[in-house]
Nucleic acid binder design. Structure first.
Lengths: 220, 220
DNA sequence: AATCGAAGTGAGTAATCACTCATTATATGT
DNA sequence: ACATATAATGAGTGATTACTCACTTCGATT
């Protein structure tokens, strides 16, 4: 309950929303993430937000506009500044060993996933059905994040700390493992008991075995 | 258009369905996978199947029963026999090198994904909203597949061909990379041009670097 | 205190929803 | 050819859908 409030406040802190508007967004985030966009009715949202149904349509002309009012700002503000810039900061920090960079990235991504899980669920649920959303999202990833990652990999390769594989292959491998781990950890089996410190270390070890240069490899 | 027919025929070959029943299932698979379950109306399905709307409800008492009539048989028949048994066969074939086993598994999984992509889309779209489906699915995976995989890993470890890491960690790592690759390949960026042979080789190389025993490692 | 634009309301709209049922068409066995 | 059962139909059901609009309330400015 409180988590939805936090999300809305983080996303819309600049725009000064009325109390009712906040309630609407909060209820919409909650219901969309729990039941899915198509299965949630505007009357339900109004009820949950303790607001007349007409109030929703005063601020958002259609139900889809309400969805975009939630997903859009997240993709532009969070994904574009929070995620990309955070990652850029990390990549610019010049970690001596690539495994230190990996570790920092994993922790950073973990925080974002935990904090914005309901929003991420909405996005990935609806991405397949809204082509314009999907393209916007993919462009965001490929344009900003991907190129930067490849740059950094090149750096480490020239320092002899990463194998001389194609940087795109290394990037894909690392991203797959990080997102795959976080997905199984927080979406697939969040209820299982996890030893996060040990699991993260193990994951980094496995990734580094895959892409690290064997000359400078530490013993297992 | 033909792919939906193939799916229905594969799934319901034993039950002898009427022509109309086949058309209903075919249309439902197509529309559910394209628009999502909640966003698809029974009148749309009837129209697409060239059938009266009442005909749908003669065979399936509710819309949800129609969904379960599609998803259930897939999970029981395909996932349980096709996928699990295929994998078991592979695991029992006693490949000399674990990388050969990996290669065979990847090709096998690739075929299944390509053939049943619409059904897989439906399942993963609806899994979050139907707890009984989710539990059935997770139990299917963990009970059948997971234990068997751990067994085989143990085997290779005793032959000194895999690192002495916890088998569950190795399994998770391998599965993450295989599914992650196939997901990006066939769901996320199916339109990109891929060099499947090279990509698969590269992926196996990276995985084996991660989990393979360095004693018997081949040079990159 | 009066004014005015924005915010909020809730009864009402046509359309569509999943689903029913009395009736008709089709297939099967004798 | 006839009887019986099952398959298929499509007009019709009340409920619910996203959305509208005439109206009221609120808050700030003068």
């Amino acid at each position: 309950m409180e988590r939805f409030e936090l999300i809305v406040q983080t996303l819309f802190e600049s725009n000064n929303l009325t109390e009712k508007q906040e309630q609407i967004l909060k209820a919409a985030v909650q219901l969309f993430s729990e039941k899915g966009y198509a299965a949630t009715s505007t009357s339900e949202i109004a009820k949950q937000a303790q607001v007349a149904e007409g109030t929703i349509f005063r601020h958002y002309r259609t139900k889809k506009e309400l969805l975009l009012a939630i997903v859009g700002p997240f993709m532009e503000k969070i994904a574009d500044s929070y995620i990309v810039n955070d990652l850029t900061d990390l990549l610019n920090k010049d970690y001596q060993r690539p495994e230190d960079l990996l570790s920092a990235i994993i922790e950073n991504r973990r925080d974002i996933i935990v904090q914005f899980l309901p929003l991420l669920k909405i996005i990935f649920q609806e991405l397949p059905f809204h082509p314009e959303l999907r393209e916007h999202f993919l462009q965001l990833i490929s344009d900003n994040m991907y190129h930067r990652v490849v740059e950094v990999i090149n750096d480490y390769q020239q320092k002899g700390m990463l194998k001389k594989l194609p940087p795109t292959a290394i990037a894909k491998f690392a991203i797959t493992n990080i997102l795959g781990h976080l997905f199984t950890r927080y979406v697939l089996f969040p209820h299982l008991e996890w030893d996060d410190v040990r699991d993260t270390e193990q994951l980094i070890q496995l990734i580094m075995n895959g892409i690290g240069n064997s000359d400078s490899k530490v013993e297992s």
